[in-house]
Design a protein around this nucleic acid. Structure first.
Lengths: 214, 214
DNA sequence: GTCTATAACTCGATAGAC
DNA sequence: GTCTATCGAGTTATAGAC
C-alpha cells in the first residue's frame, strides 16, 4: 500500500471511529441525563445515535461501562471546578460571588446535571464520590480557617464554615433539583424559569452576604 | 353457618387481611423509598414482607398501583403540612421558624423522603404535583402580600416572596437530598449528621432572618 | 466497523392447586 | 388468602455474516 493510500485509510478510519464514538457519547449523555441509569434503554441510545445496539457494546462493552464514562465526564467537569473556587485564596465575598455564579451558570447550561449527579451519588455513594474527586476529599479545613479569620476580624458574624458551604450549595442546586415543583408553584414556564435563575445568581449572593456580614 | 362461626370467620379474615396488607405496605414503603420505582423489585418487597410475589398482585394488582399508594401516602403527610404553615397567618418570623422546624424535623424522621418525592416529581411532573396537592396550587399570593407588608413597614429588606420561599425550602431539603456528599465532605457518620441537622433547625432560621431583617 | 438475528436473562404478572 | 409454577414482555449482551 502506497503512502497516500495508507494515509487515506488511516484518516478515514480515524474519522469514522471518532465520529461514531462521539455520536454514541452524545446520545448516551442525553438519554442518561434524562432517564438515569435504571430508566435509560440501550435501544433509545442507539436510536438517538443513529446506529444499532450491537455497536454500543462493540464500543463500550456494557451499559454500566458506558454510563460510567458519561457520568465521570459530566461530574468531573462540574464538581471539581466549583470546589476549586471554594478552596481558592480569593476574598470571601468574591469567592461566594464566583462560586454561586459558576454553580448556577453551569446548571443553566445543563439543567439536568444536578439530578444526574445526586442520583448516582445516592445509588452508590462511596465509589462515586471517590471517583469524582480522584479519591481526594476536598480540604474544607482551608475554608474553616478562612471563615474563622473573617469572624475574628469582625467582618462577618460567627458561622461555621461547613454550615456556610452547605447553605451556598443548597441555594444554588435545589431549584434545579426540584425544578418542576418550583415552576408549578411559581407558575413559570421554562423560559421564565431560566430568567429567574439568571437573576438568582445575584439574589443568592446578596442573600448570603446580607446574612453573614456584620 | 351459625352466628359465632360467622363472627369468627369475619374476625379472622379481617385480622389476617389487615395484617398482610400492612406488612406489604410497610415493606413496599421501605423498598420504594430506598430504590425508587425503577430500582425496586417486587421480589424484594415480597421477601421483606415475608410473603410471595403473587400476593402482592392479589392485594394491589400491579407494581405501579402499589407504588402510587405508597407515594401519595408519604407525600401527602409531608408536603401539604409544610405548605399549610407557609400559608398561615402567623407572624413572618414565627412562620419561618415553624416551617423550618417542621420540614427538617420530618426529614430527620424519614431521611429518604426528600429524594423519594423529588424523583417521582421529576419522573412525571404534572400528574404527580396535581395528585399531591389535590389539583390545587398553593396560593403563594398570600405570602407575597404578607412579605410586601413587612417590607413596607420597614421590618425586612426588599425581597420577593417567591425567592424567600425557594431559599427556605432549599436550605431545609438539600442536605438530605445530597446527604452522602454532605457526610463525605464533612466527615460525619450517620449519627453526627443527624445531630447536625437537629442543630440546623436553629441555624437555618437564624441564617434566613439575619439575611432579611433590617 | 457495522449489521441482523438471537441467545440469555430479568422481572412483572397470571394460572391454578390448596 | 396464600402458595408454586410458569408465562411472556422487555432488555442487555453476544454470535456471526458482511
Amino acid at each position: 500500500m502506497c503512502l497516500t493510500k495508507w494515509l487515506n485509510h488511516v484518516t478515514k478510519d480515524m474519522k469514522t471511529d471518532i465520529s461514531t464514538e462521539q455520536k454514541i457519547l452524545e446520545a448516551a449523555k442525553q438519554v442518561f441525563l434524562e432517564k438515569g441509569l435504571d430508566g435509560a434503554r440501550m435501544q433509545d441510545i442507539a436510536d438517538k445515535a443513529g446506529i444499532n445496539k450491537a455497536l454500543l457494546h462493540y464500543y463500550f462493552r456494557s451499559k454500566d461501562k458506558l454510563f460510567e464514562v458519561i457520568f465521570l465526564e459530566e461530574a468531573r467537569k462540574f464538581m471539581p471546578r466549583v470546589v476549586e473556587i471554594m478552596m481558592s485564596e480569593l476574598d470571601l465575598f468574591e469567592k461566594i460571588e464566583m462560586f454561586v455564579g459558576q454553580y448556577i451558570g453551569t446548571l443553566i447550561q445543563n439543567p439536568l446535571l444536578a439530578n444526574f449527579i445526586v442520583n448516582e451519588i445516592n445509588r452508590n455513594p462511596n465509589d462515586t464520590l471517590k471517583k469524582i474527586f480522584n479519591n481526594q476529599r476536598p480540604p474544607i479545613e482551608k475554608v474553616e480557617v478562612h471563615v474563622a479569620k473573617m469572624v475574628k476580624k469582625g467582618i462577618i458574624k460567627p458561622i461555621k464554615a461547613e454550615q456556610l458551604m452547605i447553605n451556598m450549595v443548597s441555594l444554588c442546586a435545589f431549584p434545579f433539583l426540584a425544578r418542576p415543583m418550583v415552576q408549578w408553584v411559581t407558575k413559570k414556564n421554562d423560559k421564565e424559569f431560566m430568567i429567574m435563575m439568571e437573576q438568582r445568581k445575584k439574589d443568592v449572593v446578596k442573600f448570603i452576604i446580607d446574612s453573614i456580614r456584620k
